[in-house]
């Protein structure tokens, strides 16, 4: 195995990993997990692999959803700087779509923050699941807090899929490369789309705005952990427009509480019936 671990080899290893030929790397990682650290450029190399993982099919779909978001934010009256700022600071797309939705309906700051917080609860358990994957006894706390900002559906799915093939001491570096690239790249996508959106033919910009709901109607269904989540989604889709007409300004929260509460009630009843 020693030939495998000359100075230039970690790069080759990762190339093999990304091509799906993991045998050599995995055998080595099990035998000698720390040898990666001996290479002076190890951190740079694994950061670069994280960067490259951002340019994958899930990353591309995410970028197309941001194309839609840029159109949405522009339509809501946000400036270019505000849109790019929001992309970097909030990052998770559902939270941003809710925030823009709240801005459009003229919600007050507390109502907007509450709606965004509710729509972002899922980030908590996602981070809870991801943190132990990346942590080593030597990992500094602030690194984990900083990296947690990059957590959103796409980067999380990518990380949970690929971190197991990254040597443990390099995982925070790898995720740093992946997460920061996704954020920065999509800030760029948002800026460019915002600038060209005005010059697009009407039908094309209609198609562009349609990307966000299409992306979410599918990915939201896939991200549901239990049947109750999918039920909540169906209820939310049906009730959303109704509450929009009944209780404008408070419609998102009302829908979430009623649709989510009903789905949870059915979930509990089904569990009781199963247990009985």
């Amino acid at each position: 195995m020693d030939w495998c671990w000359q100075a230039t080899i970690p790069f080759q290893t990762a190339v093999n990993i990304s091509r799906g030929r993991r045998a050599c790397a995995m055998r080595h990682l099990m035998n000698e997990p720390n040898s990666e650290l001996k290479t002076p450029y190890a951190h740079g190399i694994w950061f670069a692999h994280g960067v490259r993982a951002a340019f994958s099919v899930p990353g591309l779909i995410l970028a197309s959803a941001f194309v839609g978001f840029a159109g949405l934010a522009r339509d809501a009256g946000l400036t270019l700087a505000q849109t790019v700022f929001m992309t970097g600071m909030v990052w998770a797309l559902p939270g941003k779509v809710v925030l823009v939705g709240a801005i459009m309906t003229g919600a007050s700051l507390p109502a907007a923050a509450f709606a965004v917080a509710l729509s972002s609860v899922r980030l908590g358990p996602m981070v809870v699941a991801l943190t132990p994957e990346m942590r080593t006894p030597a990992t500094r706390k602030w690194v984990l807090y900083l990296l947690s900002h990059f957590v959103a559906v796409t980067s999380w799915v990518l990380a949970m899929d690929r971190l197991k093939h990254v040597p443990r001491p390099m995982r925070t570096t790898y995720y740093g490369g992946l997460g920061s690239t996704l954020v920065l790249f999509n800030m760029g996508v948002v800026a460019v789309v915002y600038l060209i959106a005005a010059q697009l033919p009407p039908a094309l910009s209609a198609a562009l705005f349609f990307l966000t709901p299409l992306y979410f109607v599918t990915s939201l269904w896939g991200s549901a952990r239990e049947k109750a989540g999918q039920l909540a989604m169906v209820f939310g889709l049906l009730l959303g427009p109704v509450f929009h007409l009944l209780t404008p300004g408070f419609d998102l929260l009302a829908t979430g509480l009623v649709a989510g509460g009903a789905a949870f009630g059915i979930h509990i009843l089904a569990q009781r019936r199963q247990a009985a």
Partner: peptide, 12 residues
Amino acid sequence: RCIATGLVAAVI
């Protein structure tokens, strides 16, 4: 999670 999902569904 149910409330959060219902809320995002309403936005969609």
